[in-house]
Design a protein around this nucleic acid. Structure first.
Lengths: 234, 234
DNA sequence: CGAGACGTTGAACCTATTCAACACTGGTGG
DNA sequence: CCACCAGTGTTGAATAGGTTCAACGTCTCG
């Protein structure tokens, strides 16, 4: 079991945009209400439909958030890194998780009962603002993606998705801006609403055009301007 | 200009799930901070990209929320009725509206500066819970739609969309459950990610199967069970 | 009544999927 | 240590679902 040190816990919580406005004493108090669990790569944190009583925060590692049809088709909703939250914000009676969360790498996850989080909110207006802003942000992102899916061809969707990933997770590297997450063709497909095969074809084509470079589980952008153009963002 | 009476204002605000937990005195106070504007059908309330400094509430009428590509392709995000909110919840500096709001019918809209709303939130934990629950709900809805668009054929998407509309706006009628909003083929297409033509074809086909009945700007469901089956929800 | 918006239907076309075969890679066990 | 095998990636060809373009019918409102 991958776990995280107490030092790491306080450091993570303290650095959360969430808790930016809290006094150290309050932070300690908040910290006491979180529990900490380690996960193996591929292990489920929760599944859609289960009663959703907790709010989670990634302390270390990466978490995959997705939804599935009955037939197993998957939409990858988000890849979360250290400091990001997920789970259920609504303490409404009987509310359930609407998505599924799985550890993508080995990960250390903090969590707090939604109810306890609600109590924290009640005492800290700045926390309320942060939380609302973050959820609104995600709603906008989801809406942008709806526009992508209903109005843009696969190539453009992939270009935009790669841009977003580079902005969020880009790291300088010999061959270009490396996306710092192991990402398979299948997963990239699940992010863009395309099949593995189509995704592979587009990646190949972007590669021979010199826009990106990619191998098994890694991808680096060589020509940001070119990618932006394909994404329709000039 | 369509406007609304003071009586209507207090009644609307008082009935909002939002303000359910407020004391009458607080409600009065909140009421004072709202301003009220009337809109003609088709008139814009705000547009994507504009600095977003207000939060809106539908007092009377219907409001259409959507996003557009540069080329004018549109995704209809939501149809809002009396009591529902929209606008910008994030008071973050420089944040802008990410979508566009247009009055679909003539409408009376209340609005409050995001900042003033933030102050209300600070004093009323129950209001915080309501707001978070509503935004989370919308995020889930957007996520469900992402799954639709990337994994389901048009017929199923339309069936699901009609089901959702009937649940939200259904009204008993001679010919079946009438969706109580004037809805064109084009708009239904924008809700499902299909062209007007495809939408028309599917509607015709549903009609000859006896599942629904529809004319210019109206649609009624005759066979809910059949529609559910097409929607894949048994 | 007429004009313009809305709705319908047909046929050609095209993008992305599906099905299939094959290549490469990395890790495991013999 | 190497061989094998499962997972991952690539590529091709056939297919299908939906779009596009086009023409025509029909309602409504000014």
């Amino acid at each position: 079991m991958h776990a995280c040190s107490i030092d790491l816990r306080l450091k993570i919580l303290g650095r959360l945009p969430f808790f930016a406005g809290l006094m150290p004493a309050d932070l300690q108090l908040a910290n006491q209400q979180f529990i900490e669990v380690g996960y193996q790569p591929g292990q489920a944190i929760y599944s859609g439909g289960q009663p959703g009583e907790r709010l989670f925060v990634v302390a270390d590692g990466k978490v995959k958030l997705f939804q599935q049809t009955a037939g197993g088709q998957t939409v990858l909703l988000d890849l979360l890194g250290s400091g990001e939250f997920f789970g259920n914000l609504s303490a409404a009676f009987g509310s359930a998780y609407t998505d599924t969360a799985v550890a993508q790498t080995s990960a250390c996850i903090l969590s707090i009962p939604t109810e306890a989080f609600a109590r924290l909110l009640a005492g800290h207006p700045s926390l309320v603002q942060q939380t609302l802003a973050l959820v609104s942000e995600r709603l906008s992102a989801a809406n942008r993606r709806l526009l992508q899916l209903s109005a843009m061809p696969v190539e453009q969707r992939i270009a935009q998705t790669l841009l977003r990933l580079v902005e969020k997770l880009g790291r300088a590297h010999d061959t270009g801006l490396l996306i710092d997450v192991p990402l398979s063709r299948e997963e990239l497909g699940e992010m863009t609403g395309a099949t593995t095969e189509t995704t592979s074809r587009i990646i190949s084509q972007l590669q021979s055009a010199g826009t990106i470079e990619s191998g098994r589980g890694w991808l680096a952008v060589k020509d940001m301007a070119g990618l932006r153009k394909l994404a329709g963002e000039e």
